[in-house]
């Protein structure tokens, strides 16, 4: 078992978080260029707010939540979400070189389903399934209770499943109310 943060602090720590920040930014923005801009801005914002960072807090959650809040601010200001919706699926271009043709088709399908999810569902799936955060860390990052994270996650997964599997799961689900 490994507990986050055991590897200790070093100046590489933030550099090591970059792939996670960039991956999360891309899940939110669905645009590689916009994602890197967002990460850059988040790093600058974190620099300005360094004095508010409390070492007992996870560095990872702190950085991710700065990035998340910036994204929300931007969305409010610019309505960029609508513009991006028109450009769906650009993201999945060029990354289907893994595996064979069938796999490529499947991956493209999953990418399209993911990009069609509402932003808060993309956020939990990216943080937990892809970036490997715990429920607790994801809740801290998003500033919502763990229960909300879980119900969003369940809904997001249900939407990502194959239509038949989703139907079968629907019959299995116990509870699953979104607390937010």
């Amino acid at each position: 078992m490994r507990i986050w943060g055991m590897s200790g602090w070093s100046s590489h720590e933030i550099e090591r978080e970059l792939p996670r920040l960039r991956g999360y930014a891309r899940a939110l923005t669905r645009d590689a260029v916009a994602a890197d801009d967002l990460v850059q801005e988040a790093l600058l914002r974190a620099y300005e707010r360094a004095s508010t960072y409390r070492p007992e807090r996870s560095l990872r959650s702190w950085l991710l939540s700065i990035l998340h809040n910036l994204f929300i601010d931007h969305k409010r200001r610019e309505g960029s979400e609508q513009r991006r919706n028109a450009r769906l699926s650009l993201l999945s271009e060029g990354l289907v070189a893994h595996g064979g043709q069938e796999q490529a088709v499947f991956l493209r399908e999953i990418a399209a389903r993911f990009e069609a999810l509402p932003e808060e569902h993309r956020a939990v799936i990216s943080l937990i399934s892809v970036q490997g955060l715990s429920y607790h860390e994801a809740a801290t990052t998003l500033g919502v209770p763990v229960g909300t994270v879980m119900s969003r996650l369940h809904r997001a997964r249900a939407a990502l499943r194959e239509p038949q599997a989703a139907e079968a799961a629907r019959l299995h689900v116990v509870g699953g109310k979104d607390a937010s």
């Binding site: 991956g23 891309r26 990354l95 893994h98 999953i110 993911f114 799936i125 990216s126 892809v130």
Partner: peptide, 8 residues
């Protein structure tokens, strides 16, 4: 999803 996220 992880595979899709690897092409940074």
């Amino acid at each position: 999803l992880r595979l899709l996220a690897t092409d940074l």
